[in-house]
Design a protein around this nucleic acid. Sequence first.
RNA 1: GUGGGUAUAGUUCAAUGGUGGAACGCCGGUCUGUGGCACCGGAUGGUGUGGGUUCGAGUCCCACUACCCACCCCA
Length: 425
Amino acid sequence: MIKAVRGTRDLLPPDTELWNFVEHTVREVFARYNYREIRTPIFESTELFSRSVGEETDIVSKEMFTWEDKARAASEKTQTLTLRPENTAGVVRAYIEHELGRSGLLQKLYYIGPQFRRERPQKGRYRQFFQIGAEVLGPTTAGSELPIRDAEVLDMLTALLDAVGLTGWTLYLNSVGCAKCRPAYNQALRDALENVKDQMCGDCQRRSETNPLRVLDCKVPEDQPIIEGLPKIADYLDEGCREHFAQVRAILDTLGIPYQVNERMVRGLDYYTRTTFEFTHGKLGSQSAVLGGGRYDGLSEQLDGPKAPGIGFAIGEDRLVLALQAQQQQTLAPLKAFVVPLGEGMNRHALKLAKQLRADGVAVDVSDESFRLKKSFETAEKLGATFAIIVGENEVKADAFAVKNLTSGLQTTVSRSELLGHLED
RNA sequence: GUGGGUAUAGUUCAAUGGUGGAACGCCGGUCUGUGGCACCGGAUGGUGUGGGUUCGAGUCCCACUACCCACCCCA
């Protein structure tokens, strides 16, 4: 048997209904904030990711699905392509390529789509996974750098989580500084680690060399006192970054959005500057981050584009759905009625009635006359239909049908013209 | 990529190395124009894949694959 490959999966009914509900809600909520959809290719030049996400990150150094696309003709050239491991790079690339900044307006874009990372699958982690993300970016003159944008993004996220019914989340907030002040902090951290790293766990000793910021994220209990004593990013933020972060928090306070500043929260993509954030949820096991994001004021220039500060996020849709399922969010059965033909030659009359109801926008399904009536009722029950409508000889003659409410058990005879109104009561 | 666990019917699980079972679900009947309840009856897998040990393997060994948990990391 051929099976779905490692780390990929089929989404089947009824789960797909929850996915659709989430995506529907996303589109509706994001539209209220004036975001519009962008769709970028599912694969891009490998270089796009190595230059934006960062050559040294785990994503680029070991998790990408990359292949050589060989030249087939003189007019082609061989290039190295990669299935997108995230979508911000693609959006910024599109922003640059189509000169979206020339409108002078802030670009508020969102996307929903699959991403690919070659990691070991785990709960809430798949090799093909779905992200719902949004980016707001534009020229500085459009206000793209201002704290109000950060706060608005976070406000939209809380509105979305509210709308889909997710409870029990925590918003963690941090500022990681900018290209000017972060190097100083990095250096201070390296210097401090030099003295204490041999007392720390093996992972931290390694991180001290490769990515000192990650040491802050260590969960080994013995290391915690040492980490407490390390330099704090807040003390190294320059005036601009400090003020920016303070304003973001002030606006969040005004909006009544609860958050916790977490100075240890480190994000794994190199392009983040200033504000970074993460929403976690307790029901997700060790992959507790349901969404994450941050500001990336230098990304466009890093990709040879114009100055275009921005902020964005990605929601792990798989994880959001998992969290909702853990809350036992029930999706309702959408089927209104099950039309039951009874006796020979009734199929066509049943289908005609179904056609009429469907044209009126009612979700109905149709049985067939090979089923005994009892069986059809059982099926109606299993399908979650609210009504069963019987189409027998008597009914066809009278052009009025036996309509049974499967919840209450009450049955009445309703004429064809009154049927629609009866079902919608 | 690393460590650990698991893999038996549609599902959840049983089966001291000796002919693979239960529950639920499914199908049928009691009940030939009426579901949910009850009772009766029935079908369903040869044990993830490939090797090996053994007279004999679901059971022991090896490899592979997948899933789960954790690490790493991230959404």
